[in-house]
Simulated assay, not measured.
Amino acid sequence: MGILDKFKSNKAARERARQASDAAEKKANERTGGKHEQHIDTGQQQAERRLGMDRDRPDQP
Rank of each mutant, 00 (worst) to 15 (best):
R16S: 15
T42I: 09
D59I: 00
P61M: 03
D56V: 09
D54G: 03
E37F: 05
K6Q: 13
Q44F: 03
E25M: 07
G34D: 06
I40C: 00
D22R: 13
I40W: 01
E30M: 09
R31T: 07
A24K: 05
A24W: 00
E48C: 04
S9M: 12
G2I: 10
R16A: 14
G52R: 09
P61R: 10
I40E: 00
G34L: 07
D41W: 12
N10Y: 11
D59S: 01
A13V: 08
L51H: 05
R57W: 00
K11G: 10
A47L: 06
R31G: 01
Q38G: 07
G33K: 08
H36R: 15
L4F: 11
R31I: 05
I3Y: 14
A13Q: 14
N29M: 02
T42S: 09
G33Q: 05
A17W: 13
Q45I: 02
E15K: 12
M1Q: 15
E48Y: 07
G34V: 05
R14I: 11
S9Y: 14
L51G: 01
A28R: 05
A47Q: 04
D5H: 11
K11N: 15
H39V: 10
R31Y: 10
M53S: 01
Q38A: 11
Q45P: 01
R14F: 12
M53T: 00
S9G: 13
D54I: 05
A28N: 02
K8F: 10
A47Y: 06
P61K: 09
P58G: 15
A23C: 14
A12F: 11
R49Q: 12
A13H: 11
K6A: 08
H36A: 13
K27P: 00
Q44E: 08
G52H: 05
G2M: 14
R14K: 14
G34Q: 12
E30S: 07
D56Q: 13
G52E: 02
D41T: 12
A12I: 15
A13K: 11
R50I: 00
M53R: 08
K35Q: 08
K8M: 12
G33S: 03
K6G: 07
K27A: 00
R55P: 00
T42N: 12
H39I: 09
R49C: 06
K11H: 15
G33L: 02
K6P: 02
S21A: 09
R16N: 15
K35N: 04
S21G: 07
R57H: 03
F7C: 00
Q44I: 04
A23I: 11
E30V: 06
Q46M: 08
Q19I: 15
N29C: 00
